[in-house]
């Protein structure tokens, strides 16, 4: 079964239970105690020691269908995670084959294979995967591979009190997401839209197995607006290289021939 997440940010209450549940299940250490002054977000970003991260955005824009005495204001919360991309930059870049696609269609790093070349880090269009400080291995969300083996829901989804994070079969999730979107539009939440729900809306990645319902531009949540798996564009580079390579061969030969005796 192709499993994944549908994260509906309109019901997220920013409780961070997902973040903590993830760290607890995966026994991830804290990333230090630093006050960031980024609203209520003190873990700042996804990384080797934070596989779920809740973003907090205080906007000078009102949500339609919400009225507050503050006027033009709203507070968005969004729980971010590895997208388990249909076409995963990290996976396609990994030279060792450490990153594999599992039977759940998730993108998984085999810790015993990774040699820490760091190529996946540059290849992820979402800035998700990172290298561990200590042993230099790439480290990220596993989609709770171990829990799935035991038919358990991923820890983050299990802990989410409002079902902002919904785990399940992707086709089912996509239908649910579309239904939810329709409801929101009916209620006048015009700005609601799906990010990465399918290949059509995000050709660059072929769609995300962890997709989102957002109410503002991706940049607001620190998501790339048009992510593209780098390999999609590699052909051009290879071509350019081939041409240049022929050039160098020609120049080399030319230099040699031109230097034959009898010539000045």
């Amino acid at each position: 079964m192709a499993a994944g997440f549908f994260t509906d940010t309109t019901v997220c209450i920013g409780c961070k239970a997902c973040e903590v549940a993830c760290k607890e299940w995966n026994q991830l250490p804290d990333d230090g105690f630093l006050f960031t002054a980024m609203s209520y977000d003190n873990t700042a970003a996804l990384g080797a020691s934070t596989w779920r991260h809740v973003a907090f955005v205080e906007r000078p824009v009102a949500l339609s269908e919400q009225l507050t005495g503050l006027g033009q204001f709203s507070w968005l919360m969004m729980s971010d995670v590895c997208k388990h991309c249909r076409r995963a930059g990290c996976l396609e870049a990994c030279p060792t084959g450490a990153i594999i696609r599992t039977e759940h269609d998730s993108v998984y790093v085999q810790p015993d294979v990774c040699n820490g070349c760091g190529y996946c880090v540059t290849a992820c269009p979402f800035g998700v995967i990172d290298r561990r400080e200590d042993d230099g291995r790439a480290w990220k969300c596993t989609l709770c591979y171990d829990r799935l083996q035991g038919d358990l829901t991923p820890a983050c989804a299990k802990a989410c009190p409002t079902d902002s994070i919904q785990f399940g079969d992707l086709d089912e999730l996509r239908q649910r997401a579309r239904r939810r979107l329709a409801v929101l539009h009916d209620r006048g939440v015009r700005e609601a839209w799906l990010y990465g729900a399918d290949a059509a809306s995000q050709p660059g990645t072929g769609g995300l197995n962890a997709f989102f319902l957002l109410v503002d531009r991706p940049e607001v949540y620190n998501l790339p607006p048009e992510p593209v798996v780098p390999t999609q564009r590699a052909a051009g580079a290879w071509g350019a290289m081939a041409a240049a390579a022929l050039g160098i061969a020609a120049v080399a030969l030319g230099a040699v021939l031109a230097s034959r005796p009898g010539r000045p």
Binding site: V11, Q66, G69, L70, W75, T162
Partner: peptide, 29 residues
């Protein structure tokens, strides 16, 4: 949130705009 999903209107009256206000239909400081 379940009630909201079923159409309930949520009013939050609070000096601050909190994580409750963030998902309320009406926030009154």
């Amino acid at each position: 949130m379940e009630a909201k999903a079923r159409g309930a209107k949520i009013v939050h009256v609070d000096p601050r705009f909190t994580r409750t206000s963030a998902v309320a239909d009406l926030h009154v400081p």
